[in-house]
């Protein structure tokens, strides 16, 4: 293999990997925030809001990210709202991921039994403290596998952001392709994604094993 190619393209790939990492980070964090809000609205069955949340979740889960991004980037400006590529990518990821996280967290919250909540109440815990000390810690452990799957799913979905004119890994690979380094650039592409996502996947597996160990599952 041509080593000079690697040394030349390495900075480009490194920069693109960093971009993907940053987009994924904000996308995942905001998704968890949005998802938590939606899940709590569902959990407390807040009227009106829960209808809106339901509609949002269904729309986000049943349309592809790439279509959502195209709409954000190419159609919204015509309606008077201009977002730059990075903002579009993070907004799109959050729109999509928020819905998945909401479902994950909701199933976690629902897994906490009615009598667990009553026990907390009988000890004098108010609504907020009950959430914080008793419901959320248990719900998170149950939701963790789905949260981890969603995180990895979102990181993989960032691979489409070149359509909103971002110079991500795929963009770099495609660019180098034109110069006729198909195998090398494609291998670099695969390696970069492995470096990005494999540690996250392993990290979550470790967390899941630990939270199972810490007193859950009968």
């Amino acid at each position: 293999m041509d080593t000079s190619f690697i040394s030349q393209s390495l900075p480009l790939f490194a920069k693109a990997t960093w971009l993907t990492l940053v987009l994924s980070f904000f996308g995942v964090v905001f998704s968890i925030v949005v998802g938590t809000f939606c899940a709590i609205i569902n959990f407390y069955k807040i009227p009106v809001l829960r209808r809106i949340v339901y509609a949002y979740i269904e729309v986000a889960r049943n349309t592809p990210l790439i279509v959502q991004l195209f709409f954000l980037y190419y159609a919204l400006p015509r309606l008077g709202m201009v977002l730059d590529g990075k903002t579009c990518a993070v907004v799109g990821l959050t729109f999509l991921g928020g819905a998945y996280m909401a479902e994950a967290i909701r199933s976690g919250l629902q897994s906490v039994g009615r009598t667990q909540i009553e026990t907390g109440m009988s000890l004098g815990f108010g609504k907020i403290k009950l959430m914080r000390y008793i419901i959320i810690p248990q719900a998170l452990a149950v939701a963790l596998p789905v949260i981890s799957a969603t995180t990895i799913f979102l990181m993989k979905e960032t691979s489409v952001v070149s359509i909103v004119a971002l110079h991500d890994l795929l963009y770099v690979a495609k660019d180098l392709l034109k110069e006729g380094h198909a195998l090398q650039s494609n291998l670099m592409l695969v390696v970069c994604y492995l470096i990005l996502i494999l540690p996250v996947s392993l990290g979550f597996s470790y967390l899941e094993r630990r939270s199972r160990f810490a007193g859950f599952g009968a």
């Binding site: 990895i152 993989k156 979905e157 960032t158 691979s159 489409v160 890994l169 795929l170 690979a173 495609k174 392709l177 198909a182 195998l183 494609n186 592409l189 695969v190 994604y193 492995l194 996502i197 494999l198 996947s201």
Partner: peptide, 23 residues
């Protein structure tokens, strides 16, 4: 399974389309 789990579909499409068709 683990490889498919962490690799974006788009990257796989890219890899197989551009590498295989060229080589």
């Amino acid at each position: 399974l683990e490889f498919i789990r962490v690799m974006p579909i788009l990257v796989l499409l890219f890899f197989f389309y551009y590498t295989l068709s060229r080589y």
